[in-house]
Design a binder for these strands. Structure first.
Lengths: 245, 245
DNA sequence: CCTTCAATAATGTATAGACAAAATGAGCGC
DNA sequence: GCGCTCATTTTGTCTATACATTATTGAAGG
């Protein structure tokens, strides 16, 4: 379900690559950290530097690390998600349009994920943080967000102040993710959404649902509703899966 | 606008890679064609096989070619776009749900793209094919599509029979693309869309707009409307920009 | 203290060779 | 004709080495 590659026998350079990736994804090596120099890794694995180089080259192409001559190789800063998916961080989107961002936290409570259903995939303890909030642009409602965060996976979320930093932004900055699934659709606004977004009941809304994993652990689930005239997703792609703009 | 890499001095392996890529993108080497074996390319460029290998490896990772031991390397079949973007080919989507696909061509005419506006980016001659069609699942309207195709870039489109093959499917199979831009939003159905999709006027619809380029040439522009309950886009991503499922 | 410049440490790229692995196809026995 | 074996071709990976490139460091000189 989560990782694509099975347990096929990896070549040495692939294993080196996977090891480094694991260190980064697990958080052991953090953005900006310098990773061991290539000859050192070569010695460690008992192989030629070229073999290490192939791993680091691939990681650099994938954007996980940055290599700099003479300086060394460093764990890359996490990219803003929008650069990858065209699905932007909301405060960044609003700022881009030259508007003032505001956040209104509607509710945040800790509870146990319901067993048996969708929610029991939230980590071991089953404790989740459930958050409702409203994103505003120049004081006008922009998006309504409903979110669950796994406290088993992200215990620090219990202490975060989501009345000032929106949960999505906080998570992006604090938790590396390995996989995400999006569902995008159109929905008619129900009574509550209509009231919060200040639109007519039944008016069209863009719905964005996202699940995010780190390894096998389900990190967060979120549903965002945008009034139809407030927002369009835009994404630019090449066949390779690159994203730009 | 189109290609990322500027005219920096490329390394030899990068140049080899670019040369092969050009051959594929231009259509000189078509899907399924075998490309020269590595030692042959090495001789041609006067370099070691390893240097060629690095180019072919990168192309394989990018999905442009497929390498098979003993058999050789082949230009990859164009991937179904859904594998990359989560934005599926409509007949494939419908078939996946076990429903019968039907196409109704509403109109197709050749005209000159309007100058000055958006449309003048359609190739040199400015001739475009303008197509309206309706996609049906089990006889029920699924999506309404409005499309422009550049006849300067894709002259063969003039002869294609779009009453049997939907234009998107035909293009995917015939024209390699280098870049695409998507716009996704929610819209209220206008009178015509409502009638065609058999929904109420003002009902929420998912709107999907896509522009596709080959190199600098604008290949096609399309807008598709889906009734809100008929369709959700689903996409699965890793931070690297991979797509799966 | 600041500037200049050279030594140096790291990546960036290429080489020639080696052996492994896999798929193909040819030859052979039945 | 059918199935088995085996040599051959081509990719898959690694090695050890070489030299280029570049940013940093630190020392020399003003």
């Amino acid at each position: 379900m989560t990782r694509g590659k099975g347990a096929e026998t990896l070549s040495l350079s692939q294993r080196i690559r996977a090891d480094i990736e694991e260190k980064i994804m697990s958080g052991a090596w953090r953005p900006g950290d310098r990773i061991p120099v290539e000859h050192e890794l070569a010695a460690q694995y008992g192989c030629a530097r070229m073999t290490v180089t192939r791993a680091t080259e691939a990681l650099a192409e994938a954007g996980l690390i940055v290599r700099r001559k003479r300086a060394g190789s460093f764990v890359a800063q996490p990219r803003i998600e929008s650069a990858v998916l065209g699905i932007p961080d909301i405060p960044a989107t609003i700022a881009e349009r030259g508007k003032a961002y505001d956040l209104r936290l509607l509710s945040a409570r800790r509870r146990v994920a319901a067993a048996g259903g969708e929610e029991d995939r939230f980590g071991g303890s089953g404790d989740v943080l459930e958050i409702d909030c409203l994103h505003l642009a120049d004081g006008i409602p922009f998006a309504f967000e409903h979110r669950l965060i796994s406290l088993a996976v992200v215990p620090a979320a219990a202490e975060a102040d989501f009345s000032r930093t929106p949960p999505g932004t906080w998570l992006l900055a604090h938790v590396p993710w390995t996989e995400a699934e999006h569902r995008i659709g159109a929905r008619a606004a129900d009574a509550r959404a209509a009231e919060l977004l200040n639109i007519a009941k039944g008016a069209p809304c863009l719905m964005l649902e996202r699940r995010t994993w780190r390894g096998d652990a389900h990190v967060t689930w979120v549903r965002q509703l945008f009034a139809a005239d407030a927002f369009d997703l835009v994404a630019r792609f090449t066949p390779k899966g690159d994203a730009a703009g």
